[in-house]
């Protein structure tokens, strides 16, 4: 599962988008992990994450864009993985400082600009263990939506956010029947894992609905433009 990888965007846009995935692995450290995970969910909130969730199946209650954190915490069981998104590097750093101090002993994955993550790790004394880099989109890339729309839809790695929903909400914003803030939240609701960043979506929607908007990112390449 690579649901936080392959987020399209410029370095500027990706600078406000950091995903956290906590993993308790079956057969290693999963038994009795629910309590730690519940504490971590509260920690996400303390450090002002813009989206939070994680539980699956019958324990799934939605992400915080559509339900309360209390209901998510209440439903968490061993084997569920807490997820969140921070919209600034500063929030990520403050979270990682406290995370390291609390030493939960669970696997922690951060998705975002590698150089930013690495600089925070260097600062707080963490040596990264393993990396997973995207090598881009291949095949018939003419099937993909234009850059900014793709930036929005790829914030849900499971592909739950429809490009056609983005188009629909842009029409509603332009017609004055929906605010950009509400559209950002609306787009994040289908993302079961809560990895969708509504603040970044707002920023992209502002660009998409601005007069004279032009496409900025050509994602139809093998490898990514640096």
């Amino acid at each position: 599962m690579t649901h936080s990888l392959h987020r399209a965007g410029t370095i500027e846009d990706l600078g406000c988008d950091y995903v956290i995935i906590i993993r308790a692995e079956k057969g290693y450290n999963q038994e009795g992990s629910a309590g730690k995970c519940k504490e971590l969910l509260r920690l996400f909130q303390k450090h002002d994450a813009v989206n939070i969730t994680g539980a699956r199946g019958t324990n799934y209650k939605g992400n915080v864009l559509e339900t309360s954190l209390d209901s998510i915490v209440e439903a968490f069981k061993d084997g569920n993985s807490p997820y969140c998104v921070f919209d600034t590097k500063e929030k990520l750093e403050s979270f990682l400082v406290e995370l390291k101090e609390k030493d939960f002993g669970l696997s922690v994955v951060v998705s975002g600009l590698y150089d930013s993550i690495r600089s925070i790790c260097d600062k707080i004394g963490i040596v990264p263990h393993t990396t997973n880099h995207s090598l881009g989109v291949w095949g018939n890339t003419s099937l993909l939506p234009d850059g900014p729309v793709l930036e929005i839809t790829t914030m849900c790695g499971h592909g739950m956010v429809s490009r056609y929903l983005v188009d629909d909400l842009i029409e509603k914003i332009r017609a004055g029947s929906l605010s950009i803030e509400k559209a950002g939240i609306e787009l994040g609701k289908p993302c079961l894992c809560g990895l969708f960043n509504p603040k970044r979506a707002e920023m992209l929607l502002r660009k998409l609905t601005a007069d004279g908007n032009k496409e900025r990112v050509n994602t139809g390449v093998k490898g990514w433009a640096l």
Partner: peptide
């Protein structure tokens, strides 16, 4: 890509 998943 400039963005990556990093296991800490």
């Amino acid at each position: 890509s400039p963005n990556a998943k990093v296991n800490l």
